[in-house]
């Protein structure tokens, strides 16, 4: 499995994964043939099967073009089972480069009006690339079930109503995320966090497993269910 940070100039993924101090070469070095692809890949500290191709920090989005990205993704495809490209925000060249080599897309949005509007735009752009991108699914991030219950936030159904797209996962808002990013240890590797579980469920769905969605309804979050869940090892 390989992660590709395409946010050239605003490199972040290495920090979140705690690999910042191991980055020697980056994506632009590979594209400009200053190093081999294998040299630029940074192996994860915890999972030996996971590699990161970091973005360049001292360059900008114009440093690569779509053809180069296609070529790069082809090469990565032959080396890994999964290649996950982290697209920069926006719909400009950075985004176009990021999707250049993609076969599937995961659209991530928060349940806010402005974010959903942008996600809709992105989905429109992805639909225009139908021949290349065969499937796109949605991850709803930072959902606050309590606010949804009070009608202060859009719920999962509201967002799906607008976007009419297949749902891949819902990640609840979680303070653990801040802790884990500060530590440089992805939350998906933690056992006892709701967000970590949500991310692991997403990963399993990406692999084709049928995983039921987490119950984020506050009405079901009573002390009885908590106790039941406590004794139930397979929490969903």
């Amino acid at each position: 499995m390989c992660l590709v940070d395409m946010d050239i100039g605003l490199r972040n993924l290495d920090i979140l994964m705690g690999l910042e101090n191991r980055v020697v070469y980056n994506l632009v070095d590979v594209v400009e043939e200053r190093c081999k692809l294998r040299q630029a890949l940074v192996k994860d500290k915890r999972m030996p099967n996971l590699s990161l191709l970091p973005a360049a920090q001292t360059r900008d989005k114009t440093a690569v073009n779509a053809d180069q990205m296609k070529k790069l993704c082809e090469e990565l495809k032959s080396m890994f089972d999964f290649v996950l490209v982290d697209s920069p925000a926006g719909i400009e060249s950075g985004f176009q480069n990021a999707i250049a080599g993609a076969e599937e897309a995961i659209v991530i949005t928060t349940p806010e009006m402005s974010a959903v509007r942008d996600a809709d735009r992105i989905i429109g752009l992805l639909e225009a690339q139908k021949d290349q991108i065969t499937q796109y699914r949605l991850v709803l991030n930072r959902l606050r079930p309590k606010m949804v219950a009070n009608s202060d936030m859009m719920g999962v159904e509201d967002v799906l109503e607008i976007l009419s797209v297949k749902l891949l996962g819902v990640v609840p808002e979680d303070e653990e995320i801040i802790i884990s990013t500060n530590k440089g240890e992805p939350v998906s590797g933690t056992d006892n966090t709701r967000s970590g579980l949500a991310f692991r469920n997403i990963a399993r769905r990406l692999r084709g497993e049928e995983v039921p969605f987490m119950d984020l309804d506050v009405k079901n979050d009573t002390w009885v269910t908590r106790i039941v869940n406590f004794f139930n090892p397979v929490r969903v």
Binding site: N21, V23, V24, G184
Partner: peptide, 19 residues
């Protein structure tokens, strides 16, 4: 530093609490 290189040698910072 995150990394330093002097001549041919290379060193990186330990993985520490970065806050």
């Amino acid at each position: 530093p995150i990394q330093i290189r002097i001549g041919d040698a290379f060193a990186r910072s330990p993985d520490r609490n970065r806050l």
